[in-house]
Every structure is written in C-alpha cells, then in structure tokens.
Simulated scan of single mutants.
Amino acid sequence: MNENVLDQSQIVSAGSASTKEEAIREAGAILLEVGAVTDGYLAFMLEREAMTSTYMGNFLAIPHGTNEGKDTILRSALSFVRYAAPIDWDGNEVRFVVGIAGKEGGHMDILSKIAIIFSDEHEVQKLLDADSAATMLELLGDVNE
C-alpha cells in the first residue's frame, strides 16, 4: 500500500468545478477514487463546510469531514485541484482546493505542511504557474515527508 498522502494521480491541474459545492465534490471524488475514504465521506465534507468555511487564504480552501465522519476515512490522503478561474468561496477567491482525509489525527501534521507552503506567496505563484501535475507534486512534495 502506498504511504504517500499525495501522488500525481491525486492532482488535477485544471479542475472543472465552478461553485464551492462542485469543488468539494470534485476533491472528495479523488479521495474516494484512491480508496482513502468511503462514499459517505463526501456528505461529511459538505456538512463541515455548512458549519464553517474551510477557506484558508492565499487562494486556498481545505474541505474536510466532520469528526462524526472519521469512520468513513480508510487512510490519510490529500486531493489537490487547481482552477483556472477563481471559485467564489463565501466571498473569497479560491484557485486551489485541497481535500483532506486524516486517519487517527494524521490530518493535523498534513494541514501544517500545506499551511507552510501556502503561507509563502512565491510558492503559491509557482503552483499557479506550474505546467503539469508532476510539477505541482514536486512543489508539494513536503506533504509526503
């Protein structure tokens, strides 16, 4: 079994969503596709978003499930979707949606690594300019350490 939380197959360089809900579904579908979550996890992602926005700043949103949904997480993993056109996320522009599933509290370490990358505007610009999923994975590689 793969121990990385993010592989190239979990990165979409040109997402198709145009609304917040569609983007959450797109990020959740990747987590489901790689076997990190059961199909029930998406409902918990949408429920979390209804409770509080997962917008983080610097064009980033990190949708994730509620505590009640932890039984639908099979392993820790990320999905990473970039959008050419900003998505309106409660009045904020989002260009990156990072879906997260953290098994047994593993999401806190992953979140901190994502936060470090996105706290640097130069790194965010590199992700905006990246020409492929492979390049984005290289820029995001620290999440797997």
Rank of each mutant, 00 (worst) to 15 (best):
S76H: 00
I114N: 01
A27Y: 11
L32G: 07
S16I: 09
A130D: 00
H64W: 01
I11G: 09
T38G: 10
G65Q: 14
M1Y: 12
L139I: 06
A130I: 00
G99C: 10
R25K: 09
L128H: 10
D88Q: 03
G40L: 01
N144E: 03
R82Q: 11
M108P: 04
V5K: 03
F118K: 00
E138R: 11
E104K: 10
E3S: 13
S119H: 03
N92M: 01
A50Q: 07
L78Y: 07
G91Q: 08
R25H: 04
M45R: 09
A77V: 01
I110W: 00
K113P: 09
Y55Q: 10
E33D: 09
P63L: 14
N58F: 07
Q125W: 02
E145R: 15
L42R: 09
L127E: 07
R75P: 13
D88T: 15
L139T: 08
T52F: 08
V12C: 10
R48A: 12
I117Q: 03
S53I: 01
V81C: 03
M56V: 09
R48E: 12
L137R: 11
I116T: 15
M108T: 09
G105N: 07
R82Y: 06
T19M: 09
S18N: 12
A61V: 10
E21Y: 08
A133Y: 00
I30R: 05
I73Y: 04
D131C: 08
M51G: 11
A85K: 14
R95I: 11
G106Q: 10
D7M: 14
G99N: 08
S76R: 03
S18I: 15
A115P: 08
T54V: 11
G105P: 15
E104S: 13
S79D: 06
A133S: 00
A29G: 03
D39Y: 08
A50D: 15
L140P: 01
V98G: 06
E3W: 11
M56W: 01
G69R: 02
I114W: 10
F59V: 06
I24A: 05
T66Y: 00
S112N: 00
G99L: 07
L139Y: 01
A84N: 07
L46W: 07
G65D: 12
F96W: 04
L140V: 03
L139N: 15
K126G: 13
G106K: 05
F96E: 02
M56E: 04
S16M: 08
F44Q: 13
D71G: 14
L46C: 13
T19L: 06
G15L: 02
A101T: 01
R82E: 04
N67T: 15
N67Y: 10
I116Q: 14
Q10D: 10
Q125V: 13
A29I: 12
L78S: 07
D90T: 00
L78R: 05
L42M: 13
K103W: 01
S13L: 14
E121G: 14
F118G: 12
Q125R: 04
G57S: 07
L128S: 04
E33S: 14
P63W: 11
I87E: 05
I110F: 01
Q10M: 13
N4Q: 15
A43N: 08
M45W: 11
E121V: 14
G69A: 05
Q10H: 15
I24G: 08
L42P: 07
D90H: 09
E49S: 13
H64V: 02
L32A: 03
S119L: 07
S53C: 10
S16Y: 03
L137A: 12
E138Y: 12
E33W: 06
Q125T: 09
R95T: 08
